[in-house]
Structures are given as structure tokens and as C-alpha cells.
Design a protein around this nucleic acid. Structure first.
Length: 262
DNA sequence: TCTTTATGGTGAG
DNA sequence: TCACCCTAAAGAT
């Protein structure tokens, strides 16, 4: 159940574990037989993350993976269990075995198909090619709320339901404001907020929005999971004590503090 | 043993 | 906006 930081970590992890290895690939569930056959026996060159998408590249073939809401990977280095009935793809290379379970998408893509996927994605704050200017530009053209816009992967790639809620709180932006009405300076600041939160997410392997100093701690990493978020799924605001609002925005439950974010 | 929920996304109407 | 796809774990009964 990943937002962008998880995918970028996975790309690093999988590339480190599998690059230059000859792959043994199977599809225990049977639904990814074609992809497994194409990838089997090839040598992995690189794994790239763009937003919530992963691309596994060997010389002649690229595998596209999107985990969706339910997808997950499991890695094994020893004591590899037999695949579960739901294991879509098992990739083994070197001393690592990686199982892919329940992805929304998992198939070989050609150059055109990859291009189509990339065209649907806005700037990714975790990538060097993602820029605040591009984000602000795309934001300014959307006639939806800023809360809905942050979940739109064409506006910004990799943000999910937790990052949008937490970033809007940290940036003190009312989620129901119109995306197009957010001034450039504020959009730029929001981009920086998101990028900082997501980079910390990659570093820590979890989402921690709270500042350690608020909890009398020295590092973000020492914040307990229960204390890590400002508004997501909370009842009361940690800053003002007011009631956290929640409503479906952009098709998902959004949480915000009507008093701190106005 | 159910029912519910979840950090996502697509395509039809 | 809605129905639908994918899976596992937690909570309710």
C-alpha cells in the first residue's frame, strides 16, 4: 500500500539486489506467464521509479509494475517459502528472491506503451527532473480543489492520500481552495514541503510528518508511528486542539484542520 | 467466520 | 460519479 517514497525505495533495493544478475522468473499464479517468459533468463540492468510506477529494464525487455492499493513485494534472502497461490511473479537473481503479489499492473511494455505511461505523469518530487515550476504550471490549469489536485498523478506524481493530507497541513493550505487560485509562491512552497516530506519518507521507510522538536525528540526517526502524522485519520488537531474535518475529496477521505488550514 | 478497511487507478455513463 | 479490479490483515460476531 504504497505512496511514491515506497516505490523509490523498492527501485533502489531491487536494483541493488538484482542488477547484473541473470534472472529466473516464474508466475506461480499463472496470470503473468507472458511477462515471466519474456523476463526469464535475461540480465537486469536497472530499476527506475517514476511516481508510483516501476520499470525493470533488461537489455531487450522492460517490465512495468504498478502496485495499486493492494500490491506488495516480499523479499527473501534465505529460507525462501513456496510461493502463495496469489504470487503473480517470482523473480530470483543472485541470492535474492522477490515475490510480487496483487499488483494492479505487471506486464512487459514496449517503448510506446512506456511513453504513454510517462505522459500521464506530472513531475515527481523524488526525481531530479521534477521541478516546482512544472508543478505550479500544472496546478494552475486545473479547475479542481487543491486537495483533489494533489492526488491527480498528472499534476504531481507519487503523492498519495497520506502525503496530500500531511503536506497541506504543514503548508497550512485549505484543501478546498481552488488549485488554479494558489499563487506561484505558495505552490512553490507546497512543492518544497512535499519534496521534503517524501525524501524523509524514502530515508526512514515510513511517513513521518511531525517535527521531532514538538515531541521533545532529536530525530524524526525516533518518532513513534502513532505520533508521526498531524491530521491523517486523527480526531483532534495536535496544534490547536480543534476538531479535524474529514470528507471525500478527489474520491478519497481527506483529513484537515479547518482552523489551522484557512 | 464473517465484514471491513486500506498509502491506487481505470473505464463506462 | 460509480462500478470495478487486485489482496491481506484487523475487527466484529
Amino acid at each position: 500500500m504504497p505512496e511514491g517514497h515506497v516505490l523509490h525505495r523498492l527501485a533502489r533495493e531491487h536494483e541493488k539486489a538484482l542488477a547484473d544478475a541473470a534472472l529466473t522468473v516464474s508466475s506461480p499464479q499463472g496470470r503473468a506467464r507472458a511477462a515471466a517468459a519474456d523476463l526469464d533468463g535475461t540480465t537486469l540492468l536497472a530499476v527506475e521509479a517514476i511516481g508510483k510506477h516501476l520499470f525493470y529494464r533488461s537489455a531487450a525487455t522492460t517490465l512495468h509494475v504498478h502496485l495499486g492499493l493492494f500490491g506488495r513485494f516480499r523479499s527473501y534472502h534465505a529460507d525462501v517459502p513456496p510461493p502463495r497461490p496469489t504470487t503473480r511473479l517470482r523473480i530470483q537473481g543472485g541470492s535474492t528472491t522477490i515475490d510480487l503479489i496483487g499488483p494492479t499492473d505487471c506486464r512487459i511494455v514496449d517503448r510506446d506503451e512506456e511513453e504513454t505511461i510517462r505522459e500521464r505523469l506530472g513531475p515527481d518530487p523524488l526525481r531530479a527532473d521534477g521541478t516546482a515550476e512544472e508543478f505550479a504550471h500544472r496546478l494552475s490549469r486545473r479547475r479542481i480543489t487543491i486537495g483533489a489536485a494533489l492526488l491527480d498523478q498528472r499534476v504531481i506524481a507519487g503523492v498519495g492520500n497520506i502525503f496530500r493530507a500531511e503536506a497541506l497541513f504543514v503548508a497550512a493550505i485549505d484543501p478546498l481552495r481552488s488549485a488554479a487560485s494558489v499563487p506561484l509562491a505558495e505552490a512553490t512552497a507546497l512543492w518544497e514541503t512535499i519534496r521534503t516530506l517524501m525524501r524523509e519518507g524514502v530515508r526512514l521507510g515510513r511517513i513521518v510528518a511531525r517535527e521531532p522538536v514538538e515531541l521533545g525528540l532529536r530525530s524524526r526517526g525516533s518518532i513513534r508511528n502513532a505520533d508521526a502524522l498531524y491530521v491523517y485519520k486523527r480526531q483532534t488537531c495536535l496544534r490547536c486542539g480543534g476538531t479535524i474535518g474529514s470528507a471525500a475529496v478527489g474520491g478519497r477521505s481527506l483529513y484537515w484542520c479547518p482552523s489551522c488550514q484557512s
